[in-house]
Design a protein around this nucleic acid. Structure first.
Lengths: 142, 142
DNA sequence: GTACTTGCAAATAATTTGCAAATAT
DNA sequence: ATATTTGCAAATTATTTGCAAGTAC
């Protein structure tokens, strides 16, 4: 029993700290490989395998979230509690979080139309971030 | 120029017909491997590579849609025009389509909160389908 | 007849696993 | 002191590609 419990204790290692710091400052979607590259700056002995294991762990702990896009299903974004959905820039992969979720009517329509009991949903937005928009519009504005 | 155009002509082959029939009757999410297994019944000389190519083609033509779940990003569901979002049974992978999309307010909130110009979104529902619910509740009803 | 399509085998790429050594507590 | 964590190398798995032969039009 005590053994069982102690299994839940996660140790704070140099590797985990490095990965977490990279994710914490991350304003962009990052693949495990990209996290690896960046975290090696802080922890040179880091291995790619460890990054994969960190992403899995942090995902469960709610520190990061896996975000899916066309042709890329293994990138991660940092995630804070209470935040639910992500907005991703199609150009530069910048990520923003949106708190709350207001799709009740749509959800109910879906239940009525299909007869399913909906338990969970996934919602992601894609578009152009402010930086990319500014660049596109040029120095003079629109 | 004419050459360019002719590239868009798709030929109707036994393989494509078989794959399309499998997808058309499909009430379930299917991986390329599963499509392959089923379509071989209709077309024994079918190769897995061809299935992959069909899924890609049909995807572009809007006949099928790739559906993502936790731990599975390469399954496909049939898709009809006008239908946009899918409801997936977490137990049996049954799929239903929901026409229309009523998330305008949420989308606008997201734009205001983030400053992004949202161009596209992704919405998927997960839950329990009528069949699985009936089974769970037993023959006597709830 | 011609251009598109196919199936095979090989190449590529991403992710996972086993395990001994290292390390946080 | 001990259970967890790590990094390496190998295994696994999914997907893509080159190309000659086959096929729809």
């Amino acid at each position: 029993m005590l053994e069982e419990l102690s299994k839940r204790v996660h140790r704070v290692t140099r590797q985990r700290r490095a990965v977490l710091q990279v994710m914490a400052e991350g304003r962009f979607l990052l693949t495990p490989g990209e996290v690896y590259e960046r975290a090696r700056g802080r922890c040179p002995r880091l291995g790619l395998t460890t990054v994969y294991r960190c992403m899995e762990l942090f995902s469960q702990l709610g520190y990061v979230r896996r975000v899916h896009r066309d042709g890329d299903c293994s990138s991660y974004a940092r995630s804070r509690k209470g935040h639910r959905h992500h907005v991703i820039c199609s150009q530069c992969r910048r990520v923003a979080e949106v708190e709350g979720c207001d799709i009740g009517p749509m959800l109910r329509t879906a239940e009525e139309h299909t007869g399913f009991k909906i338990e969970r949903h996934w919602l992601e937005f894609f578009g152009q971030c402010p930086s990319c928009r500014a660049l596109a519009e040029g120095p003079g504005g629109a």
